[in-house]
């Protein structure tokens, strides 16, 4: 088990290194990032000064090496726009993003898992079909459509909910629902299928033959097994949500998180911020995946065994 965790961590470090490298070279494909940012009209002396100020001297390889060294030392560069360390800028944004991610996750699990179980238990009645139809619709509607619809209805027409920022609990309602919509749909379908799979297993019959009440059979024996499969998908979904879902939803609701920061940085071409923002999100995805892997092994003894 220890070995397995160790291996997962090594994999994680390698992945992060690859991401950092890709991001670094991708932002430099169109020449010096500073040129794109500052445009024309600088004297050569000013230009030299700016290059030194932002640590962009030397060949691209020298820059890469000094960038990597900077990362290791915890020096992630300065924002072109705000002239302060990008780490500081990104750090301010992590909290709100995590809050939104957390509330969406809680909502997703609380809604999707019970719905999935209900759909599985009632698969041949109208209840099961209704849940699945709902999930199908939820899956087909993109989150920005849900977001726009909610803003029009609850904010502009009914005037019940605030749109901009994250000041109060009320501010969480619409972004959380917008983030969770597709996830709930996906996870409901997945939970249902995992549960259906488990319901037909021999050990469920054994549990009933023991004289256990049906609720115990379903929740203790059934859900525990289905949960193992659901967990693996959940990890991927959260990772996806951390990476992509955030950008759109945060931008729509002007949520002061990383997603919104990335959109702004891309528009004004503030590459150090964009670079570090992407690295941070990638780190989050990689970490979530690694944690899921480890949790998966903890939840399923067979995998724990196979992975040593």
């Amino acid at each position: 088990m220890t070995l397995y965790i160790l291996r997962t961590l090594v994999k994680m470090v390698v992945t992060l290194f690859v991401i950092v490298t890709l991001v670094f070279f991708a932002t430099r494909l169109s020449g010096s990032p500073l040129d794109t940012f500052l445009g024309e009209g600088l004297t050569p002396e000013d230009r030299e000064a700016m290059i030194r100020y932002f640590g962009l001297e030397g060949s691209i390889w020298q820059q890469y090496v000094s960038y990597l060294r900077g990362l290791l030392e915890g020096n992630f560069g300065l924002s072109f726009l705000e002239r302060r360390p990008v780490a500081q800028i990104v750090a301010e944004r992590i909290g709100p993003s995590l809050q939104l991610l957390g509330s969406s996750l809680v909502l997703t699990i609380c809604v999707a898992v019970p719905l999935g179980v209900i759909a599985a238990l009632n698969r041949s009645s109208w209840v099961g079909s209704a849940v699945m139809a709902l999930a199908f619709v939820g899956y087909a509607v993109p989150n920005f459509v849900i977001a726009t619809f909610m803003v029009l209805l609850f904010a502009f027409t009914l005037n019940w909910l605030p749109v901009v920022g994250n000041g109060t609990a009320l501010h969480f309602i619409m972004p959380t629902i917008a983030m969770s919509g597709v996830l709930i749909a996906a996870l409901t379908r997945f939970t249902r299928n995992a549960m259906l799979d488990v319901l037909g297993q021999d050990f469920m019959r054994t549990a009933r033959a023991k004289g256990l009440p049906e609720t115990v059979v379903i929740l203790k024996h059934g859900l525990r097994n289905a949960g193992v499969t659901v967990l693996s998908v959940l990890g991927l979904q959260i990772a996806g949500m951390a990476a992509a879902g955030n950008v759109v939803v945060e931008a729509i609701f002007s949520w002061p998180g990383i997603g919104e920061l990335l959109v702004k940085a891309a528009i004004v071409r503030d590459y150090p911020v964009l670079q570090f923002g992407v690295i941070t999100v990638s780190c989050a995805v990689v970490v979530i995946n690694a944690v899921t892997d480890i949790l998966y092994a903890v939840a399923d003894p067979r995998i724990r065994m196979a992975k040593g």
Partner: peptide, 27 residues
């Protein structure tokens, strides 16, 4: 079914053909 639960596994019980799949793998 509820009354039956008192008897199952208690006064009358059963063993099945497939020992490989009849036990819960995660317990």
């Amino acid at each position: 079914d509820r009354q039956m639960q008192v008897y199952r596994g208690n006064r009358i019980s059963m063993i099945f053909q497939e020992p490989m799949t009849s036990l819960n793998p995660v317990m």
